[in-house]
Design a protein around this nucleic acid. Structure first.
Lengths: 181, 181
DNA sequence: CGACAAACGGGGGGTCCCTCCATATGTTGC
DNA sequence: GCAACATATGGAGGGACCCCCCGTTTGTCG
């Protein structure tokens, strides 16, 4: 089950340096931060970076994994009295989080770019949480709205408003309640 | 009013070749099609491309201008009996159009990237049409939803679903009517 | 402590964006 | 028609990027 293949000590250290550098630069430059600059900042040859992370996507996945996991953990474990409101609240949290973390939306949105199946993590985690919340709130949600729809919508809003979480939140609320009155 | 500064005959011809090539390659590769490849396909030096279009944005603007203008012209000129439905219909048309034309959403979404004020065309055209429709439909729309909100929302959905207009349309409808029931 | 596998990183190839400048070519007035 | 001038051209080159090859270094384990 563990995908970690007993890295050598230095390998492990470099991998961590790379991820740390990537977190900084992705925060600054978004999803297409320069891989070479990341390598430079990590004081590592570019080949090393590519050996650890065969694709940009793979690196982003690791950069965001922890944060997304925490976000997912923050979802209500058991159904409360108002599943609809809980779904809405978490969707909002997701959107704001994604909008405040440059590059995350792009990473979530992108198709499985040749990642090992078990490595497609962030997207899967979010989908799973959302799926549960949607099922619980089924009675309060249009039948035509699937889990994927909600993910797409939240991501779309977030990716279009990177660095402007306030607007992202407002748009999501609008979309949830509907434009018409 | 005319921004065309009496181009020389060959200049005009080359400009058109570039736009034609750009339309093809942007359709294939989206907003970040290779400018060099566009120049090659137009059988033109890359310097020529950059002289005619100082920024990628300027080129995209021209590539999409006609289509967007037609789209805008298709909006109801005079208020009909149901302004709310007309707004919704045009928003849907906008979203589908944007989703089927790769790169358009990105171009519309991007800030005014050093374009001459009069050249910021597509975004302005859309906003203008939308503004009129929103004003007409004011009675049927949440007061908290501004014209810009609707543009952002439509664009967000389109950019997140390039090449999947069916999904884009569905998401827009969901957002218009609201997720809850 | 020695040998082998694992990890490293410099450097090179390919692409891209963009600018400079020497050259070529429409255009216009005579 | 033609000269002279402004306009337009494109190749070359600098700087940046991504990705891979392969000779070298360095952990690890018997």
């Amino acid at each position: 089950m563990e995908s970690v293949k007993a890295l050598r000590a230095d390998g492990r250290r470099n991998r961590e340096r790379i991820v740390a550098a990537a977190m900084e630069l992705v925060a600054r430059d978004g999803a297409q931060a320069s891989l070479e600059e990341i390598a430079r900042k990590a004081e590592v040859g570019s080949a090393t970076l590519h050996r650890h992370f065969p694709s940009r996507r793979a690196l982003l996945e690791v950069v965001f994994r922890d944060g997304v996991a925490q976000l997912c953990a923050r979802a209500a474990k058991k159904p409360g009295k108002n599943p609809g409101a809980e779904l809405a609240a978490w969707l909002e949290e997701l959107t704001v989080y994604t909008a405040t973390h440059r590059g995350l939306a792009a990473a979530l949105l992108a198709g499985p770019d040749g990642l090992a199946p078990e490595e497609i993590c962030c997207t899967a985690m979010v989908r799973e949480v959302l799926d549960v919340l949607v099922k619980r709130a089924a009675a309060a949600v249009h039948t035509s709205a699937t889990t994927d729809d909600l993910m797409l919508l939240a991501n779309a809003i977030a990716v279009a408003n990177e660095n402007d979480p306030a607007t992202a939140r407002r748009l999501l609320r609008l979309a949830l309640t509907g434009i018409r009155r």
